[in-house]
Design a binder for these strands. Sequence first.
DNA 1: CGCGAGCTTGATGCCGATCAATGCATGTGG
DNA 2: CCACATGCATTGATCGGCATCAAGCTCGCG
Lengths: 219, 219
Amino acid sequence: MPAGLDRDAVERLDAAIHLRLRVKRKDTLYRPGDRFTALYAIRLGTFKTVALAEDGLEQITGYHLPGDVIGADGFGDERHTSQAVALEDSEVCVLPYNQLDRLSATVPELRHNLFRLASRDLCRDHAMMLTLGSRSAEARLTLFLLDLAERFRTRGYSAREFVLRMTREEIASYLGLKLETVSRLFSRFHREGLIRVDGREVRILDRTALEQLVDAALH
Amino acid sequence: MPAGLDRDAVERLDAAIHLRLRVKRKDTLYRPGDRFTALYAIRLGTFKTVALAEDGLEQITGYHLPGDVIGADGFGDERHTSQAVALEDSEVCVLPYNQLDRLSATVPELRHNLFRLASRDLCRDHAMMLTLGSRSAEARLTLFLLDLAERFRTRGYSAREFVLRMTREEIASYLGLKLETVSRLFSRFHREGLIRVDGREVRILDRTALEQLVDAALH
DNA sequence: CGCGAGCTTGATGCCGATCAATGCATGTGG
DNA sequence: CCACATGCATTGATCGGCATCAAGCTCGCG
C-alpha cells in the first residue's frame, strides 16, 4: 500500500492507521451486511473470503496472506457482501476508509495504489473464473498449488515446501470440487512423485511436471 | 459515473470526455497487453470481455450493456489483461485515466464512483465464481437469463422479452458449459413452458418457476 | 445456387459427485 | 487413564450430469 509514497505521505498514512486488530482462528473479520468502514491489511496469518448466495449456497472466493489487503468488496453498496474468516490466529491493520479517502485527495500515489489493488483483484478473479469454468480438477489443484507457492516465494518463504492452512474441504470449495476429489488428487500426485503430502504439509518435488499438467489438460 | 456530482464537476467531467468511439460488431476495443489509458463507458451496444490464459484457454468473463464502464482490469499493471469485443455495432465514451485521476483529486464524489465501480465488479465476479463452482448447468443458464432480464429492466427495456446478442457458444463460454448443453437447456425450458425461444429471441413466460429452479437445484 | 456459421438433437462415454466405510488425531468428561 | 465423541482425511464402489462425437437443419450471403 505505501509503495511510491514520499516520506511525508507515509507518515500521514501511519497516523491514520491507529488500529491493529487481532483475529483468532475461525473468527470473522467482517460478514455480509456489515457496514463498510475500512480496508484491512493483513500483517500476520491467513484469511479466507467466502461468497454467500441468498439460497444458502456458499463458496470460498479467495485466500489471503500477509501483505494482502481485503475488504474492498464492501464499497459498492456501503456494505460487505462477503465474509472474511481467519484460518489461523492473525493480525490486521485497520485502514479506515474515510481517512484513506481524505488522504488520497492529496496523495496521488495512494489513489493509484487503491485503484491498483482493486484492479489486480479483478484480474485474479477473472483468472479464477476461467479456471472454474474451463479446467479439469487436476489442473485446478495444480494451479492452486503453484499459485500458493509463488505467493509464498514473493513473501520470502519457501516455494517448494509449505503448510496449508486450510482443510481439504476448504480447498475443494475454492476450486469448485468436492473434498474427496481433492484428497484423491493429492494421493495421486504423491504416488506419481510430483509432490509429497503429509496432511497439510506439502513439498513440491517436480514443479516442471506440474506446470506441464496444466497445459496438457486442455480438455 | 456522474452520479452525485455537482454541476461544475459534471461540466469538467464532460470537458474531459472529448472522445466518442464507434466500435463495429466483432471489433476489439482493447486486448491483452494494450497499454491502459482509459476507461470506456458504453453508450450504445453490447460488449463481451474475454479472459485469456497463457496456454490458449479462454473464457468470456462478462457481458456489458449501455451504462456499464469497462476497462478497469488494465490498471493493475498499466496494461489490459483481458479483451473487450463488441457483439454489435456499438459506441463508447473514452474516459482518459489521467483526466479522471486529476479530476478525482478535487471531486470526492468522482473518486467514490470510481471505487464503487470496481467494488461492484468484484462482487459480481464473486457471484459468478460461486455460480461456476457450485451450480448445475440448469441453474447457471437460469441465473444468466434472470440477470440479463434485470439489467434490461433497470435500463428501461422489457425484462420479459429481449434479444440475445451472443451466440450459444458465447453463452456457454460465459457459463463454463458447452454450446450443446446450452442449446438443450433452452429447448427444455421451452418445452416446459418456462420461456419461449426462437433463435436469439427470448421471452420469459414463468419467472417465478425459473427462480425456483435456481433454489431447487442446490445439488 | 452453394457455402459456411450457427443451432438442434441423438448416442455414448467419462470425470467428478455421491454414498459409504475406515483410520487417525485431538479433545473431553467420568 | 480410559471411553467416547468429533473433526479431518483417505479410499473404494457406484452413479449421473455434462462433454464428446456425430448428423442434419436453417438461414443469410457472396
